[in-house]
């Protein structure tokens, strides 16, 4: 691990002023992804700003009937909250299907969203990767990666978001609230927090370096069943080959793009009266990638939509 300075943020303003003063700094919360990548020297920040003790861990009701989840609420706390379990079961299920208990106990709401978009070649410093070293090439093109992007990839990168949680947040129309050193507060949908790779795959999100996530806000849950499904290579504790979240008449796909992928074509087809299998196919019509994985996503989405119409599973 490269040497770095370590700053303990005393409050949000202190964290933001530290970030503004150190352009190469990164915010540190649970550290489960950032420290892993620093050990591999894939991430080499010169300063870590520890925001882990800031008072941003509350989960509270909003005036609009939704929930506001502080950026530092751990994944375990969020998935265990009775309000999340009863009103947003798709979110609880998505979180519980990710990582291990040890990691979920440490990983935060904001940190889960900020984990690096990646594929196995990004994690292997011996191999070319445009995301890790811009201009070095993409080993995933024609490579052995099992979970590459079906939607929104470019010739430079086909890495996918590894966050199960974000797929559920996208289907629930959740918004991310951030603040910058100049005091400006901004909200954006979780769905568009991450950018598509284009010709700059090294940039995962459109957050500025001094922009700190304060909270995620959930609007009231939509009517209708909620379903979470995840397919992977073993029973537990491994990333998705594909996932799908359904909430009412909304559908989002996971592990198929650099961001949680709202299946708008599927939603439009369902609104037009299409059968679940036809609606799933409508989204896959614009997908790139191998036939087998597209078939997996199509069948997974179709099954989840049908299950949601039976009321889902709490």
């Amino acid at each position: 691990m490269k040497p770095f300075a370590f700053e303990r943020a005393r409050n949000v303003d202190h964290a933001l002023s530290l970030a503004a003063a150190a352009p190469g700094a990164r915010f540190l919360a649970g550290g489960t992804n950032l420290l892993d990548l620093m050990k591999l020297e894939i991430e080499q920040p010169d300063t870590l700003i520890d925001v882990g003790r800031l008072p941003l861990a509350d989960i509270s009701e909003t005036a609009g009937g939704g929930l506001r989840i502080g950026a530092l609420a751990t994944n375990s706390v969020v998935a265990s909250d009775p309000r999340i379990r009863s009103r947003y079961p798709v979110l609880a299920r998505a979180i519980l299907s990710g990582a291990s208990v040890q990691l979920r106990n440490k990983a935060s709401m904001g940190g889960n969203l900020m984990q690096r978009t990646r594929c196995s070649y990004f994690m292997d410093p011996a191999m070319p990767c445009n995301k890790r070293l811009p201009g070095s090439g993409c080993s995933a093109m024609g490579g052995l990666s099992q979970a590459t992007a079906l939607f929104g990839a470019s010739e430079f990168c086909a890495a996918v978001s590894a966050s199960d949680m974000s797929v559920a947040l996208a289907v629930l129309d959740a918004e991310v609230e951030t603040v910058r050193a100049d005091g400006s507060v901004r909200r954006r949908p979780v769905e568009t927090l991450h950018r598509l790779p284009g010709d700059a795959p090294q940039v995962d999100t459109d957050l500025a370096p001094d922009e700190l996530i304060l909270a995620v806000e959930l609007p009231p849950p939509p009517s209708g069943g909620q379903v979470w499904r995840k397919v992977r290579a073993r029973a537990s504790y491994i990333g998705a080959l594909a996932s799908v979240a359904v909430a009412g008449d909304r559908v989002a796909l996971g592990a198929v793009a650099a961001r949680p992928w709202r299946a708008r074509a599927t939603e439009a087809a369902l609104a037009g009266g299409a059968a679940p299998s036809e609606a799933a196919e409508a989204e896959l019509a614009s997908a790139s990638g191998e036939v087998g994985r597209k078939s997996l996503v199509r069948r997974l989405a179709s099954d989840a939509i049908q299950e949601s119409r039976k009321g889902g599973r709490s």
Partner: peptide, 8 residues
């Protein structure tokens, strides 16, 4: 419980 290796 946490992983002590992924913490400073």
């Amino acid at each position: 419980r946490i992983n002590a290796c992924l913490s400073l």
